[in-house]
Nucleic acid binder design. Structure first.
Length: 495
RNA sequence: GUCCCCAUCGUCUAGUGGCCCAGGACGUCGCCCUCUCACGGCGAAAACAGGGGUUCGACUCCCCUUGGGGAUACCA
């Protein structure tokens, strides 16, 4: 472990460690570089979060680059979805968005430079030849790779009428080491890395060239991305070296798997972040969950984004892939719901339910409903894990008389119970005070005179007033509903 | 096929040679609280993949096996 040995700082000055000194010398720049071929999925969301956290931790910059060079698959809606997803997650990026496609000329310029320096060459190998090469290598059990047949061939031998690709001349001997902050030193034998295509025959640059050029031009110092890019890091390092550019710090984060351990696919769990919003998760819960998935700070489980920024580091990112666990996310979300302000919860619930078309009947949406929802929120949020749960739990507030009864409520309201409600109703009618405490006193007193346990009265009452066997504390419910509405609902069910 | 990475309770993880017959969290199961359901509180079961080394001593270091994952494109 490096210490302050050799550092001029001793004694009281030891608080300033080597790390702080380094980061002051060079501002940290991270980036998130999704390709807009679909929604922003959860794995992308997490690498974006890690990059954002790291940049914020070091007072650096977090850049966004859209890798839209695949013209066939890139779409405008996907770009919007990425922006929207990041915004919802609260991950703000610095400066203007970079669009990779717009930088093609620059990428080609670098390829030309490589060509000029003899570090790249034109290759005229046809698709069929390539195919044969692969077949043969496979049959002989050799690594499948381009054999470099045009690497040193004279340009005059070029076949007429064939548009060449430009290949990068990668070293044949020795090894390339990727110094990764998560994976450690990863070594690749250079003979394993063949001469990759950096410019296609139609003149468009390929991914491995474009990323290197863009990351360099954008001044990216730390590349935090999925570990499916680990082998790319080797090839990219060679390009950086060929251009004489500084190689950025790498941190390859293991991928997230589905609950069954298999790769996250659309069939299970590979949802866009908008899907999580629609399921009623709070962005802060999402951030907390995602941060904790694959990264840790000792035993800390629940922490604010501010704390995450303070604590986040590359060294404590785990090296093994993790599974996405909805149950844990729910638990965390429930926690955040419980500590969230009632007004915000009410407004977000209304917005979400409307967005989903669940509360679009236009009724009961006046300020009166909102006020009631806020009033009922303490009881509602305690039993909710998502905003959807709150919406569901609040249905009794919207219901119009006579309110619908679910199966359990039906069962609760037998003849005996209805008779009981009738007597209770009579008692209620003599009381004008309608605060929760007053109501509770009345009901307890009533249960006493009836020689019943409180539950025997509370359950039928709950069924009559909420149409369900489950609800927030019944006295709060009655108070929120108001005397008139409450008595009306009881009357509807009293025999 | 070849290359690379990974491997602690069901899940997320702490653990960087002795503090660990392995700690926390979610989930599960009991109990308590209680007008329902929750919340909350208390408690329990539950893991170092297997085999070799290295060492006075391995969850921690090395090797092999097994099992996962990723990469091997004129996709990104």
């Amino acid at each position: 472990m490096p210490t302050c040995l050799g550092s001029p700082f001793t004694g009281a000055a030891q608080k300033v460690g080597p790390r702080e000194i380094m980061t002051e010398q060079k501002q940290v720049v991270t980036r998130f570089a999704p390709s807009p071929t679909g929604y922003l999925h959860i794995g992308g969301g997490r690498t974006a979060l890690f990059s954002w956290l790291y940049a914020r931790r070091h007072n650096g910059k977090f850049l966004l680059r859209i890798e839209d060079t695949d013209r066939e698959r890139s779409t405008e809606p996907a770009i919007e979805a990425i922006f929207e997803g990041l915004r919802w997650l609260g991950l703000d990026w610095d400066g203007e968005v970079t669009y990779q496609f717009a930088r093609q000329a620059r990428h080609r310029e670098v390829a030309e430079e490589l060509l000029r320096q003899g570090k790249a060459y034109h290759c005229y190998t046809s698709a069929q030849e390539l195919e044969e090469m692969r077949e043969k290598a496979k049959a002989e059990g050799r690594p499948i790779r381009y054999d470099g047949r045009w690497r040193d061939r004279d340009p005059s031998e070029a076949p007429a009428g064939v548009k060449p690709v430009i290949r990068f001349k990668s070293p044949n001997e020795g090894e390339t080491i990727v110094r990764d902050h998560v994976m450690g030193d990863v070594r690749f034998a250079n003979e394993q890395l063949d001469d990759l295509i950096i410019v296609r025959s139609d003149g468009t640059p390929t991914y491995n060239l474009s990323v290197v050029v863009d990351d360099h031009d954008m001044g990216v110092t730390h590349i935090i991305r999925g570990d499916d890019h680990l082998t790319n890091a080797g090839r990219q390092s060679q390009i950086y070296a060929a251009m004489g550019w500084d190689i950025p710090e790498f941190a390859h984060v293991p991928l997230i798997h589905g609950a069954d351990g298999a790769k996250l696919s659309k069939r299970h769990g590979a949802l866009g972040v908008d899907a999580y919003r629609d399921m009623g998760y709070l962005p802060e819960a999402m951030r907390n969950y995602l941060a904790r998935l694959g990264w840790s700070h000792g035993d800390e489980e629940i922490f604010s984004t501010e704390q995450a920024i303070q604590w986040f580091d590359l060294e404590h990112i785990g090296r093994s892939p993790s599974r996405f666990d909805f149950v844990k996310l729910e638990n965390l979300n429930g926690h955040y719901i419980r500590v969230t302000d009632d007004t915000r919860l009410a407004d977000e619930t209304i917005a979400l339910m409307k967005h989903l078309g669940l509360w679009d009947d236009g009724s009961n949406f006046g300020s009166d409903f909102r006020a009631k929802l806020i009033a009922a929120m303490p009881g509602l949020k305690e039993r909710a894990k998502t905003l959807l749960d709150i919406g569901k739990g609040a249905e009794f507030l919207r219901a119009k008389r006579p309110i619908p009864l679910d199966d359990n409520a039906q069962k609760l309201l037998n003849d005996e119970a209805r008779a009981l409600l009738r007597r209770l109703l009579a008692t209620f009618e003599t009381r004008q005070d309608w605060a929760a405490g007053e109501i509770e006193a009345t009901v307890r007193e009533f249960a006493d005179t009836e020689n019943l346990k409180l539950g025997k009265v509370a359950q039928p009452l709950r069924a009559a007033v909420t149409g369900s066997s489950v609800s927030p504390p019944i006295f709060d419910v009655l108070a929120t509903l108001g005397r008139e509405e409450s008595l009306g609902r009881i009357r509807d069910q009293a025999a």
